[in-house]
Design a protein around this nucleic acid. Structure first.
Length: 578
RNA sequence: UGGGGUGUCGCCAAGUGGUAAGGCACAAGGUUUUGAUCCUUGCAUGCGUUGGUUCGAAUCCAGCCACCCCAGCCA
């Protein structure tokens, strides 16, 4: 676990772009604020699948710790059992590992600290900083006031410490129904910050918890739990998104109103000679991507309404979906780094993500040829039954990816889009009477176009210039290069062409009444009848660039040796206006 | 009309008083047996706006404008 953190701080930091959090941490380190420690945490609530927005936070927390020889914990913020489940904790752990990160030590759960949290609540009640309130949720809302009007004190605010303690114990013992009582911090009902108007610390919920079972029927709230959990784990920098900014005064209030020695004693630093400094929260803007819905609730709706096949549908912005689509962990990490970290809420262009995956796959994916929409081509001067095994590099620049053998025969297929009887200006592919290079093979000439009774082109009769294998043709230039597959030696494949799910930049805009009205009808196009070169389905690789088409990835779930299924991750850039 | 934030190129984003980095996108060339990659070049007399301080302001001060977040016993 230590090894992953040994990334040389100075090297990594100088290579990585600056941002205000890196600057803050460097400043704290210089001033010896936490005795040289940097300890972060990624604190998801296990109530859904992780998406690309979470990836930004994961990358930030883990890399900033690694760059400074520190640690990053994984802590499930599991204080609301009604919405959480083990399925989500499993998927989250899996996603983080897949992204390439290792958390420090064991997985943590806020629920690990329920007993300590309870003790601290007793401490708060004891010192008159918290009380048991009998207001219902609706009453509490009325008492809270509005953004422009102060709230009123709860009638229970003056309850004696002894009564509060007794009631709290009975809450825990299960004597009361859900909502009958709550524990609230005694702060200021007139605060302009709504979070400080006696926030709820504990509520009664007779619900089974995925980690603690039926041990508890009272559960602490986020605000009460998060800061204390950070403190217990010795977190130095508690990074979260902008909407929690208003909660920071409460985060600090709770920690400051507890006995610092008691917190220290409950923390991982209890027996450490190191000085103990309370964690501090710092907020950054969450990631937004255009043409993408990122809200957990919205993603869930799409899954439930069957608009997509599941949380891991390749069109989903979830880590699971992107993985299945063919994104690499490195491409996601690079994307998160390139997007930066700031406090201004922008919307990142999908093009940035597309660039990140193209960039990674161009460097690392082996090439292959696949014809998705076949047109039969007969090459007259190649004998029937003859098979020429052509040796080709798997990558135009990286020899380490090796070579492969591609069978060439008298009958091949090319893509229908690579032949035009009536070509537009600038068309560089095959035309009647014209020549084109078969990639890695010969230059062929189209001698005859075979059509059916409807005038539809069904085959091409061509001849190959046998003197053009590995060399330029004599006395003329052939500009076009097209991909091809042997009709007899090629293997059948199923292809799924994916595109953005939405047709509008902001599908979550309030202007849009129903998200289904802006779904892209072509976000998934399934293609059968394609033919692929044999070397691509040996199982040696799962991601390829299909030359001239794009990057594709063997589907993890639906693919089998008999019926390979490829998902299109992303097209190649195409500067030719179609 | 309370409180907390944010405004630098079409998009992200550095910059913290000394005269506007970088990436994406875009455009034009070059190389190319992928109309890909790669390479070269171009792309903010301007930093929401109006004033002020200063020899000098994106950076400091004041006003104004726009947008985001907060009234869950969600996180």
């Amino acid at each position: 676990m230590n090894n992953s953190s040994k990334t040389s701080g100075s090297n990594a930091a100088s290579a990585a772009p600056s941002n205000f959090i890196r600057t803050l941490i460097a400043y704290d380190l210089e001033n010896g604020k936490h005795g040289g420690r940097v300890h972060t945490r990624f604190p998801p609530e296990p109530n859904g699948y992780l998406h690309i927005g979470h990836a930004k936070s994961i990358c930030l927390n883990f890399t900033v710790a690694a760059e400074n020889n520190g640690y990053c914990n994984l802590r499930f913020d599991d204080t609301n059992p009604a919405k959480e489940s083990q399925e989500f904790v499993d998927s989250i752990k899996d996603n983080i590992k897949w992204l390439g990160f290792s958390w420090h030590g064991e997985v943590r759960y806020s629920s690990n600290y329920f007993e300590t949290l309870y003790d601290f609540a007793v401490q708060l009640i004891d010192s008159g900083k918290a009380y048991v309130c009998s207001l219902s949720a609706e009453e509490a809302r009325e008492y809270r006031g509005t953004l422009t009007e102060a709230g009123r004190n709860s009638p229970d605010r003056g309850r004696s410490v002894g009564d509060n303690l007794d009631l709290f114990a009975r809450m825990r013992a299960g004597e009361f129904a859900d909502g009958a009582y709550s524990v609230r911090a005694k702060i200021d009902m007139a605060s302009p910050n709504m979070n400080m108007r006696d926030p709820v610390l504990y509520r009664i919920r007779h619900v089974t918890h995925h980690q603690t079972g039926d041990k508890w029927c009272i559960y602490p709230t986020y605000d009460y739990t998060h800061c204390i959990s950070d403190a217990i784990e010795g977190i130095t920098h508690s990074l979260c998104t902008l909407e929690f900014e208003d909660h920071r005064p409460l985060y600090d209030w709770i920690l400051q109103d507890l006995e610092i020695e008691a917190i220290r004693a409950a923390s991982v630093l209890a027996n450490s000679p190191e000085k103990y400094v309370l964690p501090e929260q710092t907020e950054f803007a969450k990631l937004k991507l255009n043409y993408t819905m990122m809200g957990k609730r919205n993603l869930k709706t799409m899954v439930e309404e069957g608009v997509v096949s599941g949380w891991d549908d390749p069109r989903m912005p979830t880590i699971a979906g992107m993985r299945r689509r063919g994104f690499t962990p490195a491409s996601i990490r690079n994307f998160c780094e390139s997007v930066g970290v700031s406090r201004s809420e922008g919307v990142v262009d999908l093009g940035m993500l597309e660039h990140a995956i193209r960039d990674d796959l161009d460097k690392h994916a082996p090439r292959a040829m696949c014809v998705m929409n076949p047109l039969r081509v007969v090459i007259g001067n190649i004998a029937a039954g003859e098979i020429q095994q052509l040796d080709m590099a798997s990558h135009p620049k990286d020899e380490s990816l090796g070579r492969r053998s591609v069978p060439f025969t008298r009958e091949i297929v090319i893509d229908r889009a690579d032949f035009e009887s009536d070509p537009p200006a600038g068309f560089k592919r095959l035309i009647p009477g014209g020549e084109v290079r078969l990639r890695g093979c010969y230059v062929i000439k189209c001698n005859e176009v075979v059509t059916d009774s409807d005038g539809e082109v069904i085959a091409l009769h061509c001849s190959a210039d046998l003197d053009t294998l590995g060399k330029k043709p004599e006395g003329r230039k052939v500009k076009g290069v097209i991909h091809w597959v042997s009709a007899s030696e090629g293997k059948p494949v199923s292809i799924r062409l994916y595109d953005r799910l939405f047709t509008v930049e902001n599908p979550e805009s309030k202007q849009i009444e129903d998200y289904r009205s802006c779904l892209n009808p072509d976000s998934l196009i399934e293609i059968a009848g394609g033919l692929i070169e044999p070397a691509a389905i040996t199982g040696e690789h799962q991601r390829f660039q299909f030359e001239r088409e794009g990057y594709f990835c063997l589907d993890e779930l639906d693919s089998s040796p008999d019926n390979p299924v490829f998902n299109r991750t992303i097209t190649l850039r195409d500067s030719w206006a179609k």
